[in-house]
Design a protein around this nucleic acid. Structure first.
Lengths: 225, 225, 225, 225
DNA sequence: TATGAATGAGGTTTCATTCAT
DNA sequence: TATGAATGAAACCTCATTCAT
């Protein structure tokens, strides 16, 4: 029998190491569901299986917990997106569609989707959140898409549209989809109005790319035309 | 001589009649800014220029105030949209662009924009809100757009796309624009990333209509093609 | 047609004169039902058919209203009892029974019964009440009964018992009957336990008088006997 | 060596176990003194030596505290009375006098006396109280006395009076004595009118038993006789 | 490290009282 | 005289945070 005592308490040690992540997960779920103010810190502790006091061993205040939640859950998917974008190859529209659908499906289905709602909700109360949100999420995310768009325009695959506007036309519905998942969809209200998110993503990107690929002349007739 | 005396107190009466609207406006501003939970009812009262107690003469509880706020600020713009949509004439894309830009510019600039953020934030805590939100906002709004889209497809102006998806591609950025106005934009964060909302609306609708007007064959090449 | 205007406003005048009594009646009912603290002054006003402000034209505060209520409703029945007691004639037990049953039936059925509950409930919060209560109710009431008891003893009709104790044995159930009317009986709780109050009064006085008329020797055997 | 460590904190544990009783005692005193409505929950807490918040760790609301108070202080004395009544032996009047004086002296002197005033005062506001009051206090109390009365009548010791009326003639002064202790007597008002409660109890029961033991023929002459 | 009893500032709501009309 | 809108002190209750164990 191996000596158990070499680690004073392996089980406790494991629990201890896992605690912060468990607390962050519980906090994310509850903050997204009820909002930061309406969530009691004891609820978070209980959802993570610990007592009120323990929460304060890991986070000095509820507000710090909020900031930690946002920092913890935003990074990974953006990083992954950047890597995959760099590897995108072949016809730009096709590559982008594949990339963006895969990437946003992961975001939509993972915890990051909740962070969008949380940040939108709380940023005016805690503006410090804004800085790293822009730096770590907004700017990298936009750069992934704008880089590929620029490539498509440079190659003559896309019409020379305003890059910023096009990026927003592409991504805003993705973000709202995430927000929707944690507001209306989570209520089970108006189910007949619900979209299949992945099917919508595909249809949306195809519609946008169709618009980008059309020669301007074909597009909407001006009053003057 | 007109009968003046039927009203015992004209000044007080005027104040009394105006109070609910003043309180609703103050409440909307604060609820959108700080969230429902984080807004103290006394703050609302003070912002409306009355005392704590007066608020409760007009609304029986903070929660009822929230519901009244949402009901009060959503109706007008939707109604207006319906009327204008019925009058839309001429080439569908052109008519829609004019209609939607005008309509959403008004929504974006008026108090209704804040209601989107508020509803997204609070609907899970007060599911009763959902019912009239769907009935009075979501469904009418979608019908305005889907009706015109169907007309465009019937006339052969648009490709026969999935109507629901297209409606969402068109409107989701509008909604997120409203939400953005009251979260990131209101913080003054990352100003260099801000869009001019009306210019974006125009570019967005044009991009979408371009996509809708293109014949399918022109659109994104499939891997199999 | 007689000139109506000789009295500026006869109807209003009448109302005005009746107001204090109407308010006092409403206040008594509500104070007895819910307690002084738990009764809102607006409720009293509404029950009397006037507005909150009007109440304060007649009584300077809620507390003064309470005192006025107690003063207003306690006097009459005691006065009447004294007069009737003086006129009581014939065999003392018989005369007392008739007097007491009639007297307490009126008290039980009239507003004075509520005042007992009210005074018991509130005297510790407003000790000023106590002085005139003792002077105007307790002492006169006891004197009516003790006077007759003394007469009965002097005439040899009753055994020479302790007068004070006998008075209390006679009257305490009367008072508790009044209190009961406004607590348990008013709830409709345990109806099968309810007594017919007048029948009980008769039975009670007869039992007491029987005890008073018995010669001591007949009474309860002592341990030493 | 006994296992000490199973209890994480003996001192705190002791306090925690004692808290409800301490709070109930403080609440009884204050509710009886000032009435339920007029007692602030913070006063109760302070009287029990804890802070406002602590009260709410043990009782979910002020109203639940009231119900708990009434339940807590009524049971013991009734139980004891039942036991003693069952053991009562010898001549019924003598046995009853001993039993009732001892029993009601304990009630009068202990906390149960206050509960009478409290229940009378609050039952109309909280009718739920009525059910267990009737079941646990009124009915058992009446049965103790009516059982012994029936025995006395069956043995020919008492005249065949109406049992219910006699029970009330006996007990109502006891109850009013308790109420009096917490209203007039507690004010120090009209001290010259105060009775010695135990002496009164004895005199009262003796008077009643004398009445019960007299043959009806001896009793009050009717007008018709 | 973990607990949960305790705190008390602060939130929502009520209500006695005032006062302009 | 009568009203009822308005006030703000004070009530009930919550909850982030602390700390003794």
């Amino acid at each position: 029998m191996p000596p158990l005592s070499s680690d004073p308490c392996l089980f406790r040690r494991r629990r201890k190491d896992a605690r912060p992540a468990e607390l962050l997960e519980a906090a994310l779920t509850l903050f997204v569901e009820k909002g930061f103010s309406a969530t009691r810190s004891e609820e978070v502790a209980k959802a993570a299986g610990v007592s009120k006091g323990t929460l304060y061993l890991y986070f000095p205040s509820k507000e710090e917990l909020l900031k930690a939640v946002i920092q913890h859950f935003l990074g990974a998917e953006i990083e992954a997106g950047i890597q995959e974008a760099a590897a995108a190859d072949g016809p730009t529209a096709q590559a982008m569609e594949q990339l963006l659908v895969a990437w946003w499906t992961r975001i939509y289905e993972g915890p990051a989707s909740g962070v969008f709602k949380l940040v939108i909700t709380e940023i005016r109360n805690f503006p410090e959140i804004g800085d790293f949100w822009v730096e770590r999420v907004v700017r990298p995310g936009e750069e992934i898409v704008s880089g590929l768009l620029r490539r498509g325009i440079a190659r003559g695959e896309f019409a020379p549209v305003d890059i910023d506007f096009a990026v927003h036309s592409m991504l805003m519905p993705m973000i709202l989809l995430c927000v929707h998942k944690h507001s209306f969809a989570a209520c089970g209200i108006a189910k007949e109005l619900d979209l299949d998110p992945v099917a919508f993503m595909k249809a949306h990107f195809r519609l946008i790319f169709t618009g980008l690929q059309a020669r301007p002349a074909e597009s909407i007739p001006r009053a003057a035309a």
